[in-house]
Amino acid sequence: MTYCTGKSKAIVEYSFGDSKPKKFETDLVPIEVETVQPGNSGVCWRFAGQGVNNSAMYEYFACGTSPSYAFNGTGYNLYMDGVILAGSSYEYKAGTNSVTQVGGMSPTSGYITSGNCDCLAECEIKVLKDGQIIFSEKGVCPLTFHVTCDDDCPEGSHKCTHNKYPGYCCVPCKEVGDRLKNIANKIR
Rank of each mutant, 00 (worst) to 15 (best):
G17D: 08
K23R: 14
K22H: 10
C169E: 05
V52C: 00
L78G: 00
E175C: 07
G115T: 00
F47S: 03
E34K: 13
F71Q: 06
A94K: 09
N97W: 09
I112F: 10
E59N: 06
L128C: 00
A56S: 12
I183G: 02
Q37W: 03
L78I: 03
G73N: 10
G104H: 01
G110W: 05
C117I: 08
S41W: 13
S19Q: 15
R179Q: 07
K23S: 04
P30K: 04
L180V: 11
K138Y: 04
S106R: 14
S109P: 05
A10S: 14
K23M: 14
D152Y: 00
T26S: 02
Y76R: 01
G177S: 10
P107D: 07
F71H: 08
D27K: 02
K126L: 05
L120A: 09
Y90D: 02
P38V: 05
N116I: 08
A121S: 14
I134T: 12
H162C: 08
C170N: 02
D151E: 06
G87W: 03
I125M: 00
I125H: 06
T5H: 15
G64Y: 02
P30C: 07
E25I: 07
S41I: 15
T96K: 10
G75E: 03
S66C: 04
E13Q: 13
V127C: 04
I134G: 01
G87T: 03
E175L: 11
Y69H: 12
P67A: 03
N40F: 11
I31N: 02
Y3M: 00
